[in-house]
Amino acid sequence: MKKITTDELLERIEAGEQLNIIDVREADEVAAGIIPGAKHIPLGEVDSRVGEFEKDKPYYLVCRSGARSGRASDFLNEQGVDATNVEGGMLNWNGETTA
């Protein structure tokens, strides 16, 4: 499984990179704050929404601690999607969030 730390992800965002970030937490967790520009696809919907992922683009998956996004990353990689798990998830996120 490919991994990236929250600090590495934040550096790339601050450098102006346009990243495809997918938040796989539940709606009530996302309501408390999401990385600006991230798309919300709850873990339970990833399999039924796999068609929304473009196979020629990399995706960065985040959850609360990194466990759920790790499962989602594994699944997406098996489907031919370039998915990277954000280690430590939102618990380690030091950047801005939006409601």
Rank of each mutant, 00 (worst) to 15 (best):
A72T: 00
C63Y: 03
G51Y: 02
L61N: 09
Q79C: 08
V50Y: 09
E52G: 03
A72L: 01
A67R: 14
V46Q: 04
D47A: 15
G51I: 01
R49G: 00
F53R: 04
E87T: 12
L76S: 01
T84A: 07
D47S: 15
S69E: 10
E52P: 01
N77I: 13
F75P: 04
A72C: 03
A67P: 09
G80I: 02
L76E: 01
R64A: 11
S48G: 04
K55R: 15
G51Q: 03
C63T: 00
E45Q: 12
D82P: 14
N77G: 10
Y60A: 00
V62L: 09
R64K: 14
D74V: 12
C63D: 08
G70S: 09
L43R: 13
A83T: 04
G66I: 02
N85F: 02
E52D: 14
Q79S: 06
N77P: 13
Q79E: 15
S73M: 13
E87Q: 12
V81D: 03
V86S: 05
T84W: 09
R49K: 14
D56L: 08
L61T: 04
N77E: 14
S73E: 11
G88H: 08
G70T: 02
D82R: 15
G70V: 01
F53Q: 07
D74Y: 13
D56N: 14
E52K: 04
V46C: 01
N77C: 11
Q79R: 11
N77R: 15
G66K: 07
S73Y: 08
V86L: 05
Y59I: 00
E52N: 06
V86N: 03
V62D: 07
P58E: 12
V62Q: 08
D74H: 13
R68H: 08
T84G: 04
S65D: 09
Y59D: 01
Y59H: 05
R68S: 03
G66F: 02
N77D: 12
G80D: 09
L76R: 03
A83P: 10
V62C: 09
G44H: 01
A72D: 06
R64Y: 10
Y60G: 00
V50H: 09
S65K: 11
S65A: 11
K55S: 11
V86A: 06
G51V: 02
F75A: 02
A67V: 14
V62S: 06
V86F: 03
G44K: 02
A83E: 06
V62H: 10
L43E: 09
E52M: 08
D74W: 13
C63V: 00
L43T: 04
V62F: 06
D82S: 15
Y60T: 01
G88Y: 04
L76G: 00
S65P: 10
P58V: 00
G66H: 04
F53L: 05
A67E: 13
A72M: 02
V46F: 04
V46I: 12
Q79H: 12
Y60N: 04
A83D: 04
E87D: 11
E45P: 00
G51H: 05
R49E: 12
E45D: 13
E87A: 13
F75W: 12
R68T: 00
R68Q: 03
D56H: 14
D47T: 15
R64G: 10
E45K: 09
A83L: 07
A83N: 08
D56V: 03
S73G: 06
V46A: 00
N85E: 06
G88R: 10
S48D: 09
E52S: 07
G44Q: 01
